[in-house]
Design a protein around this nucleic acid. Structure first.
Lengths: 120, 120
DNA sequence: CTTGACCCTCACACCTGTGTGATCGTTGAA
DNA sequence: TTCAACGATCACACAGGTGTGAGGGTCAAG
């Protein structure tokens, strides 16, 4: 598919899709035109990138995390000690984010429940 | 305590603490000097604000969420329908963030496990 | 009284993700 | 052939969170 369709399917503007590619988060083939060509699998990847961006991770970190998703043993080989250390750090930060979000979400939910009960 | 101590205790620069106040996320009393004066409770509040910012929430949203944390029945009263609708929307977005983060964190964890096992 | 460590306000600047528009090439249908 | 719709690159602009520094008060210790 071309960039327009991918944009519609993911909700990301064409501009952003090009930006993600520039940041090394997604890839594309090129037609003889120069037009970008995407496979179906890219849709999930884009959605994942957008989810992580929305969750506060910078592109630099997302770029490091993405290879972990492809469960290929190949990638396990080229893991330098620094990469591993970085990933461990990010793992902790993600866990902390989850904890923070969960705590606050539960509080909001409890609040809304209280409001609803008070309404009656 | 004054702003310097609060800064040390929270890891937020003085600049940021003033910014958070300007955005209505925290409050402070003023000494006759004009110096800001904080109570102990503010430390947790600042940490919470920073956690939510780090998790991708903008100050505008954080400002709406914060009152939910103070479990005072008083606040339940002044909840306009729009506020409630907004909170419900944010609740969903937070849940979605949590889901995304959890999925990716687990993937990273699995990857690191695989690497560690491969190392031996 | 002076000095150093705080505090204040204000303004400018940066980075990152994103929008917008200019200018131009490609393609398919009328 | 022409026109509309799409694609490409590039550049400028913006907003939000953050850093930095200027210019100036406050206050306690020497």
């Amino acid at each position: 598919m071309r960039i327009g369709e991918l944009s519609e399917r993911t909700g990301a503007s064409r501009r952003l899709l090009r930006y993600y590619e520039e940041q090394g988060l997604i890839e594309s083939d090129r037609r003889p035109n120069g037009y970008r060509e995407y496979g179906d699998a890219i849709v999930d990847r884009v959605l994942q990138v957008r989810g992580l961006l929305d969750a506060g991770l910078p592109t630099r970190v997302i770029k490091q995390i993405l290879p972990c998703l492809e469960t290929r043993v190949i990638h396990v080989a080229d893991a330098t000690p620094e990469t591993i250390a970085t990933l461990e750090g990010e793992l902790d930060r993600m866990t902390e984010r989850i904890r923070c979000l969960t705590r606050n979400r539960d509080a909001v939910a409890a609040y809304l429940d209280a409001v609803r009960r008070a309404r009656r």
